Computed example of a mutant assay.
Amino acid sequence: ALADVLDRAAPGESVLLLAAADGCDALVLRVTDRIAHGRQAHPLAAQLAAGRDVAYATYLTWRGLLDREPPRRPEPDLPAAPPSARSQAWKFAFTGSRCGRCAFAHLPAARVCKGCGAVDAMEPLPLSATRGTVVTFTADRLAYSPSPPLIDVVVDFDGGGRYTMELADAAPAEVAIGMRVEPTFRRLYTAGGTHNYFWKVRPVEEER
């Protein structure tokens, strides 16, 4: 509620926050002219509007309140910090590389160009805010996923780069070749109580 109010508050206004639990706490905030620079890129109301309804059992599972039998596959390995640190730009910023000689895009980043064979001639290629188009897809009903079935899509990103990613916020019947998607940082799975995050894509409607 506070985040939603701060998305709409104007400089000079006051915000009263009441927390009624084990008594009552009150917090008064004064909005300054710096509010415009501190707001998140996507307002909370827009995030809620873009959400999807989920089954109650699915919600309980995601919250760790209900244990459900996973797909009949070996559980994923426990996430580890060292490999995450080694691939920090790829894992957390979804940054590939583009050859400075032939402009071939590599996902993930590479030292040797697959197009012209150049070595160490790469430039960073950030794609976390780049949309793409689904060129083919499949629904895997056996793969481990917190939200089965796992939908794998091959995405051609605008400006170059192709990668296979998991599609979120969609059912198999809703997927189609030519669908427009955008990257979103999501939880892949939880192993041994440790969450592992990476980039997925979600459907997006573009204005014509």
Rank of each mutant, 00 (worst) to 15 (best):
Leu44Pro: 05
Val175Arg: 03
Ser97Pro: 06
Gln47Ser: 08
Thr133Trp: 04
Leu78Gly: 00
Gly64Leu: 08
Ala121Met: 04
Gly117Thr: 10
Arg111Ile: 12
Asp33Cys: 07
Thr133Ala: 11
Ala81His: 00
Trp62Pro: 02
Ala57Ser: 14
Gly96Asp: 13
His106Ala: 02
Asp140Gly: 06
Arg34Phe: 06
Leu16Ile: 15
Ala57Tyr: 03
Pro70Ser: 11
Gln40Arg: 15
Val175Lys: 01
His37Ala: 15
Trp90Gly: 09
Tyr163Ser: 07
Gly161Thr: 01
Arg101Glu: 15
Pro146Ser: 06
Ala80Lys: 10
Gly132Arg: 02
Asp33Gly: 03
Gln47Asn: 04
Asn196Leu: 09
Ala46Asp: 10
Thr133Ser: 09
Arg8Gln: 15
Ala89Gln: 08
Leu127Ala: 07
Ala105Thr: 13
Arg101Gly: 03
Asp156Pro: 06
Phe157Val: 02
Leu66Trp: 03
Leu125Met: 12
Ser14Met: 14
Pro79Phe: 02
Phe157His: 08
Gln47Leu: 14
Gln88Cys: 01
Ala19Asn: 15
Val54Leu: 14
Ala121Lys: 02
Ala26Trp: 11
Gly23Ala: 08
Glu13Tyr: 04
Arg162Asp: 03
Leu127Cys: 07
Tyr144Phe: 10
Leu167Thr: 01
Val15Leu: 11
Thr58Ile: 00
Arg180Phe: 00
Thr130Asn: 07
Ala20Pro: 01
Phe137Val: 02
Phe104Tyr: 15
Cys24Gln: 10
Ser97Trp: 07
Leu127Trp: 04
Leu27Ser: 13
Ala20Arg: 15
Pro108Leu: 05
Pro79Tyr: 01
Arg98Cys: 07
Ser97Phe: 07
Gly115Lys: 05
Ala191Ile: 10
Met165Leu: 15
His37Phe: 06
Ala176Thr: 07
Cys99Ala: 00
Phe94Trp: 14
Gln88Met: 06
Tyr197Phe: 15
Lys114Ser: 08
Ala105Lys: 07
Leu6Gly: 00
Leu125Tyr: 01
Cys99Gln: 02
Pro82Glu: 04
Ala173Leu: 03
Thr190Glu: 04
